[in-house]
Amino acid sequence: MALKERVERLTQTKAWYGELPVESLYTAGIAGERFFRTLKDNGEFSGTKCKCCGIVYVPGRIFCERCFAPLEEWLTVASYGTLESWTVVYVGLDGSRLAEPIIVGLIRLDGASTVLVHRLGEVTPDTLSIGMKFTAVLKPKTKREGAITDILYFKPV
């Protein structure tokens, strides 16, 4: 069958399913280890500040991506901040409709230069606007495992 002809049914040509299996074991890194431990143990958001550029990275990093300075000064920023943008997601990865749409937002925590992406909760799309204040809702301490999902969602202040 020539390439330009469209295959309408799988049985018209020999084809089979295969997969590219990839399973990974990740490390959070030197900075990530500290950020997630602080989140798990203290329920706080920690970052690093570049003295040259004035940028506060949250999660913290060990280097400034702009000037390459090593970053050693850790600080804690607020667990609330400003909504920079938001969307309501209706379809899943395979294109099917979600049973319940999810709201996703970008939050710049007070004191941070960088922005986190996470889910928004306890809010409806019709009340959302950019610039609103949101605060983190964390899992109870005993349930936290040092992962980004220790944050359940952000809710309006």
């Binding site: 490390t27 890194g29 030197i30």
Partner: peptide, 18 residues
Amino acid sequence: RAQETGQELAYHAAKMAL
């Protein structure tokens, strides 16, 4: 196995070279 992320490994080498 490095505890560092790939980004952190790359940074250490690049910074050292500079």
